[in-house]
Design a protein around this nucleic acid. Sequence first.
DNA 1: GTGAAAGCGCTAACAG
DNA 2: CTGTTAGCGCTTTCAC
Lengths: 341, 341
Amino acid sequence: MSEDDWSPRRRPQMADVARLAGVSRATVSRALSDSPAISEQTKQSVREIARSLNYTVNVGAKNLRQGTNRTVGFVIPYQTSVRQAVSDPFFLSMLGSVADAVTDRGFEMLVSRVDATAIDQVASAFESGRACGVILIGQWHQHGQLNRLARRGVPLVVWGGVLSRQSYATVGGDNQLGGYLATRHLLQRGARQIAFLGNADLPEVGLRLQGYLKAHAECGCKVLKRLQVNVPFAAEQARQAIDQYLATRPRLDAIFASSDLLAMIAIQGLGAQGILVPQDVAVVGYDDVPMAASFNPPLTTITQHVELAGEQMVDALLEIVAGRKPSNRTLPTSLIARQSA
Amino acid sequence: MSEDDWSPRRRPQMADVARLAGVSRATVSRALSDSPAISEQTKQSVREIARSLNYTVNVGAKNLRQGTNRTVGFVIPYQTSVRQAVSDPFFLSMLGSVADAVTDRGFEMLVSRVDATAIDQVASAFESGRACGVILIGQWHQHGQLNRLARRGVPLVVWGGVLSRQSYATVGGDNQLGGYLATRHLLQRGARQIAFLGNADLPEVGLRLQGYLKAHAECGCKVLKRLQVNVPFAAEQARQAIDQYLATRPRLDAIFASSDLLAMIAIQGLGAQGILVPQDVAVVGYDDVPMAASFNPPLTTITQHVELAGEQMVDALLEIVAGRKPSNRTLPTSLIARQSA
DNA sequence: GTGAAAGCGCTAACAG
DNA sequence: CTGTTAGCGCTTTCAC
């Protein structure tokens, strides 16, 4: 074969297989979908010819004909301002988990990036018929808009906290419990000045903060306003916000960060000031990202059961697609004690 | 609207818009694709009605009719043995980068997970007409198979090292240069016993090892076989292999890890033995993943220019799809000195 | 400027 | 058991 052979070889189609097999297209179709109405012999020969041509049924045409759609949309938010590659590792392990679950169920996954401010675009994968529904990671302050989409008939599953009056399905950990466990762990270790890092406007983070407050209340410990630090999720901005906060040399003996990414950034910032973790300041993260165990020191954190998450989200979505009512699912949440606290 | 309103509202189609607008489907089609043959007035009214119905052209049907396909396949490898969520953050930032590039060019991205041993499946997204071509991250020892796919007519772009006699396009950094820069940096700092961590059977890693050797040769330093450690890419296995190696308390004053993930695992392992980085052992990683800067200590590493990578891979793919010959592209490669070395 | 009609690649009645 | 036929939702000649 010549090295320059880049002829636009037409892809084979069912008619080609039919011709070579000496049968009709209908027979090929049936043979390839293993219909019981076809003789073993015919099936064999059709399959063989299909193989030899590297023929695979055109999924687009099939979907069109059947009116079905075995593709799940997965939306990655971005902020126009930051236009940077997705950086939160938790987010990306979710993507992997959903990809697995989708594959297991014989579906495909269409990934699209959507400007967080143009949230209507989330629906476009569905409305243009490319996906049978959409999975979204994180609520981005947009509860109202998401509700509107769902009401409009877009099958929608969101990873995040359960809010009241939702028309879409939510899958998520028990964020309040997670916040509570993390904080209690720190309190039990004797910490009394525990900083909370995160953006409490996000439903998930807000719930974690509630857990933080609850744990304090339970042990009768005072909560200090100055220790609640508003930190965005995105890596670069987070680093700025945290460095800025630490530069004020706040008095604290522990940190509860609302994501592992934030915890890691904080630990690094503390290290730069010569403050040791966990000796001087104990730190608990959230998510248990793959790298948490490899961090230095290994991160004490709250697990999110990523594997399970993908399955639950996909199942929730397929349920909606099948016409059932969106149902929320809560995943188990627990603390993993490593060395950072 | 009732809370239980989950009627399977039929998605609107062009005929609905046409009826409401009092025109034919052909006119709607032309109006929505902004054909010059349609009067402004008609366009306005058609667009308005489409909006009000949340109507979007069915992309599947459109593709079928036009014989086009604006979807790029992106393949995530996995090993049946490990069936774990993707964990290398570098890999995942590549996904984000490709997603961006694809979106910018008006394409979509279909993500699928494929068993690394069933590499033929890589082609399926293309052969079933769902994608116009496929992007693959990493060569997985499968050079021959990839070549066969490309020869078979599958537009294929692979992130990795350039090998001789390729029928597919490769995009990648200059791995040998990267290995050279990393090693030279360590040698210049006075290190003489530099361990190399990675699986040199992979083309990319092999090239980095060559750079490592070249740097040694250049300064007339001896290369010690015992310092070349075979470590797999996947997080869990890597951790085992590295811990096992460090348990032998090897004499070394520096480590060149062939990925940041490996570097982080190694630093953590060293820390567990009370060995300080960079004081006792200097460490250089590879990739410059988002977290490298937040690690403790911040990682000295080789950049991979992820943003650029996505664009180059997509462009290379679209070139092939357009019928041109696959062309390889090499990205700039440089060392980022932080604190780990 | 707009409509009628054909057909993209496939599947599912309906016949035989 | 297999073939014929119609049509999924759309675009595009070709007419008017």
